[in-house]
Computed example of a mutant assay.
Amino acid sequence: MVVESVTALPTWVLLGVAAGIVASGVVALVFYLGDRLIAPGGTASDGRRHTGDERRRREIRDYLTATDVRFTEDHALGEVGVPFYLPERDVAITFDAHDYFRLEGEGVYTVLCEHEMPGRGLGRRLPFDVTEPDWGTRGGAATSAPDPVAAAFDELD
């Protein structure tokens, strides 16, 4: 019965379905190879791939170090583990919304960092004033790694 239904279809429909299946397979293969061969976050000197969380942690670590704020990483607050904790200010920095809401009523000021937030944006969310580090000017030599967003705007004028 199925064979009779398939043979009743015009040839161009069968060729179109076959071409769609082949094209989907090619696209899936391209994505697979792209993920395996081209690491989205780059590759570290030791050969490990950078993930978004590693990049975020590095940016926040660099920011807190540059602003001379003392912090600990992977700190446990009760049953909740936070990526960064500022013990002198009793501030927890987390990437997980569930952890943020769990800590909300615990007497700890909690900062939720979204995936899109750059590490330099943390200062506006902290409950205390932070002296922003001198990251260098657009035209001058930067004291830290160059800002890719500023470089893109400079290129585009």
Rank of each mutant, 00 (worst) to 15 (best):
M1D: 11
V13H: 05
L14I: 09
L15H: 15
L15E: 15
L15G: 09
G16L: 06
A18L: 12
I21L: 14
A23F: 13
S24I: 11
S24P: 07
S24W: 12
G25R: 05
V26S: 05
V26K: 05
V27R: 15
V30S: 04
Y32L: 13
L33E: 05
L33W: 07
G34R: 09
G34P: 07
D35H: 10
R36H: 02
R36N: 00
L37A: 08
I38K: 15
A39E: 07
A39M: 04
A44I: 13
A44G: 13
G47P: 06
R48Y: 13
G52W: 10
G52D: 05
D53R: 15
E54V: 13
E54H: 12
R56P: 04
I60D: 00
R61A: 00
R61I: 05
D62Y: 07
A66E: 03
T67H: 03
R70C: 02
T72Q: 01
E73F: 00
D74K: 10
D74S: 14
V82R: 00
P83C: 04
F84Y: 06
F84M: 05
L86A: 07
E88C: 02
R89Y: 11
V91M: 02
A92F: 01
A92N: 01
F95A: 01
F95R: 04
D96I: 01
A97K: 13
H98N: 13
Y100E: 07
F101L: 15
L103H: 04
L103W: 06
L103P: 05
E104N: 09
E104P: 06
E106C: 00
V108N: 04
Y109R: 09
L112E: 04
H115Y: 11
G119C: 05
G121P: 00
R124T: 01
R125F: 03
L126R: 09
L126N: 10
V130T: 09
P133Q: 12
P133I: 11
P133M: 12
T137I: 06
R138D: 03
A141K: 12
A142D: 12
T143I: 13
S144E: 10
V149Q: 14
A150H: 07
A151D: 14
A152P: 05
D154W: 09
D157C: 11
